[in-house]
Nucleic acid binder design. Structure first.
Lengths: 177, 177
DNA sequence: GCATATTAGCTTCCATGGAAGACAATATAT
DNA sequence: ATATATTGTCTTCCATGGAAGCTAATATGC
């Protein structure tokens, strides 16, 4: 006889779906099974990742900026506008992030030579060393979280996310909202 | 001869990975392929979903609160603490959301009879009608986004997300951070 | 060459949420 | 019964980001 224990307790999303099916039987709430869980998972992962950023005294936004500078390669410099574009925030938000990082001594800010409007943000030596350590730790953390799936599952998931993302970002012109 | 056009241009995440491979060849950045895209996709989907909330004059948080009340079923009432738990925010944040919804005439707030500390938040008639229309539209929107995948892809994705989510939320005790 | 437009970064103001504590009501222990 | 602990909500303060506008510098059109 097969064990009937642990009947896979409904997760949060499934419970919400059950509520809706009772209250609005006229609506197909199947999409929530995917979109709701994707958001929930993203939130959970963010929470786990922020634990590591915090160990280095960084917020997620600050970590992102330091990564963008480090990824740029020697001499680890970028304009604020570039950083804003890379990290998907407005230039106003970027100004404030740079303010904080500058105050912490992790980056410097100077005027660009060829365009006096522009600034150049550069990693300092301590900033470079901090992000190198933090990023190493960060990727170890992501690896740990990803290892909750098997390699086959991981590969399948990456493919599905890549496909969906490309279609969301580049909608076929025929789709209407 | 097979067409060699459109060599699947690197997406944002792939470009970031390429940068890291050059700068930090010692680190395995494969997990970003999944985690980075998952976050990117979550952000994109949120943006699309917020367009619909906005049509009804609602922010995402306000939409969530109205949904939680509507899902509760007749008479569409819940305590602020319950709402906070359901929508994953602190009670302080919930107080402010309820303030806004109350000001908009979509919910009412009264003292609980059996516990004078407690409040009861209830959907008003206009609130009920608004969320019924908004939710219908919202699910149509989620359906549109999900239909960018095939049914087989959708099913596979939901399974993978459910599996991963359950493991992230209920880590095996042997896993260490 | 000068007037106008554009650009880059910054500033200000607003929206939202978290953290911590205040406050009142209720539960618990003796 | 009363002192203490807990609970539920709200308040205050702070952190962060967006939107819009400001300023200085550069580009463009005539």
């Amino acid at each position: 006889m097969v064990s009937m224990d642990d009947p896979q307790p409904l997760d949060r999303v499934a419970r919400i779906q059950a509520d809706w099916r009772r209250e609005r039987p006229d609506i197909d709430i199947a999409p929530q099974g995917v979109i709701g869980r994707l958001h929930r998972l993203a939130d959970q992962l963010t929470e786990e990742l922020c634990l590591v950023y915090g160990r280095y005294g960084l917020s997620e936004g600050e970590f992102d900026v330091l990564c963008a500078l480090r990824r740029a390669g020697e001499p680890y410099e970028r304009a604020p506008g570039e950083l804003a574009a890379h990290t998907m925030v407005t230039t106003g938000a970027m100004t404030k992030r740079i303010d904080r990082l500058e105050r912490a001594g992790l980056v410097t800010r100077r005027r660009s030579d060829d365009d006096q409007r522009g600034r150049i943000v550069a990693l300092t030596r301590p900033g470079r060393e901090l992000i190198d350590r933090a990023f190493t730790d960060h990727m170890r953390n992501e690896r740990r979280l990803l290892d909750l799936l098997t390699p086959a599952e991981t590969q399948a998931l990456e493919g599905l996310l890549t496909t969906w993302l490309s279609r969301v970002e580049n909608p076929r012109p025929s789709d209407s909202k």
